[in-house]
Design a protein around this nucleic acid. Structure first.
Lengths: 247, 247
DNA sequence: ACCTGAACACCGTTCAAGT
DNA sequence: ACCTGAACACCGTTCAAGT
């Protein structure tokens, strides 16, 4: 009963690479990575397994294509209000990724897999380019572009992966926004309580910050981290030709 | 022929949870996540599949246990020279994770999976605690502990995941250190050339930094990012009770 | 308590055959 | 060129049976 099969009797749309990727994203959203099986896909699309391989290739290639598609859409999405400084633009791009991963939790793992397997594949390239342009607009000296952009991108990816399941909802449905808020408060409360019960000998730090956890807002916290990195970028020493002249 | 079966005829060590995890790590190191199958494991350990389930549980639980074990070891490892400032200690912890993931590439994905599924599981907790203690030692005001620690941890995780395959070797074997260096130079050169051939309309930034890629050292670059975040932490505003009094 | 291994359900992929 | 679906090899997990 879990997943409703939306179109099983006769095919409504012609089969195509795009249609297959779209259906794959629906399955992934509904049931996670394990939910995307060739059989479930052929059933949903009312076709045979060979058709999938004809249009997109193996299951792995389909996963890559789904990841590329969703990330590219998140990077291309125009924000409601036009940002007027490079800092704002960076926040917009970062929140775009943050929300995309919250909406499609399977993205966190897929992103990590692509990052590991091909560190400079299309996905990473797109993210670096988006952030890098704003770093340039910030007036950072050219020799620091790579360091500054890497720091931002890596912070964004790490934070975004950890917040995948916490951030949920936000932009999707309004009706149960209250319920989502309640869920999150409950989650934070549980985490906070768990930390307070940790062995003080092993986890003195986590115990000490247990209080802060309760009253913390994921998006605000995420943006505070962005600001911290931006501050670090502002104070970068202009690079020398040779690294580490004086250590 | 690929993987040498080290002990097949008769069992040399008594079967135990620890022995199974050890063998799992060997399989993962040799052939990645796909290389860890229950059948390969039972063959290597000269046992039946039921024994695995008796001692550790499902394949997923075994993957979690392997991840926990390797990360805990990386965090507990004592550095060659004792670090004498909190900043140095942070660099030591960060490089410990950097090297662990370079040595065990499958860790990058597993870490991301655990981070997504249980954001405050034992792995994340251990990393936060290690870094958090040093943030406290740095003299950061308590209200900023969480923000500062998150920024560091998320940067470290993001950077470390992307550098998983580039960083390889380093601490393992000396004989082919030259060869590994050559491999990396080749890799960087290829990336640099690929960026120079990108469409200037779509990727102006990546084209502009293609040169920097060639002469870049992963570990130095990683540490430069750490320093950037540390600088940002130093310049954090002391927090107010209510967030965003004046926007 | 600890271990064996056949049996089961499910999976990705291929490919001869159709249109 | 595009699609079908049976067949194949392989997988994780269970469990009655052994010690």
């Amino acid at each position: 009963m879990a997943i409703r099969t939306r179109q099983s009797q006769r095919r409504r749309q012609a089969l195509s690479r795009e249609r297959i990727i779209e259906a794959a994203v629906e399955l992934l959203d509904a049931a996670g990575e394990g939910g995307l099986t060739v059989r479930a896909l052929t059933e949903r699309l009312a076709t045979g397994s060979g058709a999938i391989y004809w249009h997109v290739g193996t299951r792995g290639e389909l996963l890559d294509a789904a990841t590329d598609t969703v990330i590219a859409a998140a990077l291309a999405a125009e924000p409601a209000r036009a940002p007027d400084t490079p800092q704002d633009e960076i926040r917009v791009v970062a929140l775009g990724l943050f929300d995309a991963i919250a909406e499609h939790q399977w993205l966190a793992t897929q992103l990590a897999i692509q990052l590991t397997r091909s560190p400079w594949g299309p996905v990473t390239l797109g993210i670096f380019e988006s952030i890098g342009r704003q770093v340039r607009a910030l007036g950072v000296p050219q020799g620091n572009w790579f360091t500054a952009t890497s720091a931002l991108v890596h912070y964004i990816l790490g934070a975004t992966i950890q917040n995948a399941q916490i951030g949920e909802d936000t932009s999707v449905a309004e009706p149960d926004a209250d319920r989502a808020d309640a869920d999150r408060a409950e989650f934070l409360d549980a985490a906070s309580r768990a930390w307070q019960e940790l062995d003080p000998g092993d986890y003195p730090f986590m115990r000490a910050i247990a209080d802060q956890m309760r009253e913390h807002n994921d998006r605000e916290q995420f943006l505070a981290g962005i600001d911290l990195v931006l501050t670090g970028i502002t104070h970068l020493q202009p690079p020398t030709g040779q690294a580490h002249i004086a250590e």
